[in-house]
Computed example of a mutant assay.
Amino acid sequence: MAPKNKGSGMISTGIAAQNRKGRFNYTIVDTVEAGLVLKGPEVKSLRMGRATINEAYAGERNGEIWLINSYIPEYQGGVLSRFEPRAPRKLLLHKKQVDKLLGEVARDGVTLVPLDIHFNNRGLAKLTLGVGEGRKKADKRQAIADRDWQRDKARLIRNKGGDY
């Protein structure tokens, strides 16, 4: 397995960008891993871990799915080729996957939420795309309460030592 961190501070495997609010604002029904069409300097910038996908979303254009409004800053390593940091980026999916996702999005209240950009074991950039249903405010409160209870329960068990 490749090392997590090479000497220059670059990520060879692991998460490059994460959308933490995605799982909070949406109930994720299904996830799909998609490839990304990127230029060389974009990959280098992603490996530095400076990208953000918090305001990003996925949408359909000409029968293909694109990642829109993701931010990958320009690579400052002396590369001459510049790119647009917020340019739409094409997602690589099989035709059956695209048809399935577009069918699910056609339903009311369902959207495609980018959850994270990561590098797989082969060093390729992948996007985890979630099919999400929007949560209401009460659902978000319940999620917070459940998360707090799980944390408190773990703390009680840890402090108790397991013997009741």
Rank of each mutant, 00 (worst) to 15 (best):
I15W: 07
T111Y: 10
V98A: 01
M10I: 07
L156I: 03
K160I: 07
Q150E: 09
R82D: 04
I144R: 07
G123E: 08
A56G: 06
R50W: 13
I157G: 07
G22S: 13
K137P: 06
G9V: 05
A17K: 00
D152M: 08
L36H: 10
I15V: 15
K136F: 02
N25Q: 10
D152F: 07
M48C: 12
K137C: 00
G9K: 11
Q97R: 09
L127G: 06
Y164P: 03
G123A: 12
W66V: 10
S8D: 15
T111G: 03
P73L: 08
I11M: 13
I53A: 05
H118M: 04
K44W: 02
L129A: 09
G63F: 01
I65A: 12
V131R: 03
K21Q: 13
N19P: 08
N159Y: 09
A16N: 03
G77R: 07
A51Q: 11
G35F: 14
S70R: 03
N25C: 09
H118S: 14
S70K: 06
P85V: 01
H94F: 00
V98H: 02
L80K: 05
A143S: 10
A87D: 12
G14Y: 11
E74T: 05
G14S: 12
P85R: 00
R86C: 06
A87G: 10
A138W: 07
Y26P: 02
D116C: 08
K136N: 11
R158E: 10
I157Y: 08
V79D: 10
Y71C: 09
G49Y: 00
T52P: 04
V37F: 11
Y75C: 09
T52R: 13
F24M: 05
P85A: 01
I68D: 14
F83M: 04
A58H: 08
R151M: 04
G40V: 07
G77T: 04
L156T: 01
R151W: 00
S70F: 12
G9E: 09
Q76K: 14
A17F: 01
V105A: 10
N5I: 15
L93V: 06
I28N: 04
K95I: 12
T27F: 13
D99S: 09
Y75G: 00
E133N: 05
D99A: 11
G9T: 06
K39G: 14
Q97A: 13
L46C: 03
N5E: 14
R47L: 12
L112P: 01
N5T: 14
P114A: 10
P73H: 08
G14V: 05
T13A: 14
S81C: 01
V113F: 07
V110E: 02
N62L: 05
G63S: 00
Q150V: 04
I68N: 13
Y57Q: 03
D152P: 02
V29R: 11
G63N: 01
S70T: 11
K160G: 07
P114K: 06
M1S: 09
V131K: 03
L112S: 06
N159I: 12
T128H: 03
I65E: 03
E55Y: 13
M10E: 13
Q18G: 06
L102A: 01
R155Y: 10
E60R: 02
A16G: 02
